[in-house]
Every structure is written in C-alpha cells, then in structure tokens.
C-alpha cells in the first residue's frame, strides 16, 4: 500500500496512544508469526508519516514481558550493513520505558535499538540487535540486558518477519503492568523501498528527541 505525501505532517496534529493488548500465553519467539492474532496488529500510524507502507507491526504484553513483531513485505534479497544500518535492510526501535513525552532530551529510560534481520551472528544467519547511543541525552541509559531480550527472524518468499521479546528489566525501568505507557517508535529501513515510520515521522528529530515518539499503553487483561 502506498501512503500519501502531506505538505504538513499530520503526525504533528495528534499524540497517538496505541493499545498493546494483554495476552495470557507468551509469544514463541521463533520468527514465525503463526501465534499472533489479528487484534495484536498495531494501528497503521505509519500512514500519518506518508511514504510506502510495506511493513506491519504487532505488539502484546503479559507479566513475562513485552512482545513485538515486524512483518516486512520483501521479494528481493536481504542486504544488511552493520556499519550503516540505514544503508541496508534494518529495523530501528525507540523505546522510553517511562513514556513521559514531556522532555526533548533522552533520559536513562530511553533506548535506541537497531536490529538487522540477518547478520554476522552464527554463520551470518541469525538476526543481530544492538543499542545505539542517543545524542544529546540528559543521562545515558544502562546497557540493556541482552540475555533477557530474545530476537528471531523468519524468512518467507515474499516477506521476512522479526520477533522480539523484552523480559521485565531487560530495559532499565521496564516493569510490565496494566495501564503502563511506554514511549515507542519504529523505523523500518528497506534498501529498495526506503523508510517506513511508525509512531514518528521523517524530518522529526526522532533519533534524539523522545517527545516525537508515540505511546504504547499496556491494555487490561481480558476479563
């Protein structure tokens, strides 16, 4: 689906808060999206940023952590670039575990994570994740506990998928609870189709300003 290009960014008109639904059973992080339900697809906020919409995001939470999935339509070979992730196929996540949205400078609760669907992992087939520093931060957040973050990628004929699970305390300050709001934005890089944004917009200084990220609210457990 192709998005419209706007003269003034509609993303600036709204402060969206997407509901991250509760799920009883944790997601099996294996790169296969079979255990996700339709209701866990995040609203298509990327349309507010314009540009081509080729990726779908899913999210859910429970006491065991936060689960995210990104499904990217892709027919061409995946090309990744560790030095300059944006020059290849990559996903960038921006997470503020306290979701304040009030300050323009990152705090110790803000993270910028980069994930490559394939990379130099074992035999070059495993996804890679690392943390990038956030410029002009007030305080640098502690190193994420990568043992408590699980990542998997799955490759299909016309798409690839990434799954992530963040256990409690894997990111500083992250304690899943009903009603918790975290700052969240994602940028998907595709070497052929350019960038797709979720929860932020091009030209916003999202790499350094957490007030330009949207919010993800942990929804209530099903009655």
């Amino acid at each position: 689906m192709s998005g419209r290009e706007y003269e003034f960014p509609p993303a600036a008109l709204f402060e969206p808060i997407a509901i991250c639904p509760y799920r009883e059973r944790s997601v099996r992080v294996d790169g296969c999206l079979g255990d996700w339900s339709e209701s866990e697809i995040l609203p298509a906020l990327g349309e507010l940023a314009g540009g081509e919409q080729y990726a779908t995001l899913r999210s859910a939470w429970n006491e065991h952590g936060l689960f995210l999935a990104v499904e990217v339509e892709k027919q061409e070979p995946i090309v990744t670039n560790r030095q300059t992730p944006s020059a290849g196929d990559a996903i960038e996540l921006f997470i503020d575990t306290r979701g304040a949205r009030s300050g323009h400078r990152a705090t110790q609760f803000c993270y910028h994570l980069v994930i490559l669907p394939t990379g130099p992992g074992s035999g070059g087939q495993e996804p890679v994740i690392w943390r990038e520093p956030i410029r002009r931060s007030l305080q640098r957040s502690p190193e994420p506990d990568f043992d408590a973050i699980r990542v998997a990628a799955g490759l299909g004929d016309d798409c690839y998928a990434m799954e992530l699970a963040f256990e409690p305390d894997s990111l500083h300050g992250y304690e899943p609870a009903e009603g918790l709001r975290i700052g969240f934005a994602a940028v998907i890089h595709d070497i052929q189709r350019g960038r797709q944004y979720w929860g932020t917009a091009p030209d916003f200084p999202y790499e350094r300003d957490p007030s330009t990220w949207s919010l993800l609210e942990h929804g209530p457990p099903d009655p």
Binding site: L13, F14, E15, I17, I19
Partner: peptide
C-alpha cells in the same frame, strides 16, 4: 477505536511545536 486513543493538539500548537 478499540486499539487507539489520541490527543488532538490543534493546528496552532502543532505548527508551533513542529
């Protein structure tokens, strides 16, 4: 909708902020 809540900033504040 059941998956999205939003605050509407209004034209003037959003132009100023942007």
């Amino acid at each position: 909708n059941d998956r999205l809540i939003a605050r509407f900033r209004g034209l003037v504040p959003s132009i100023e902020e942007t």
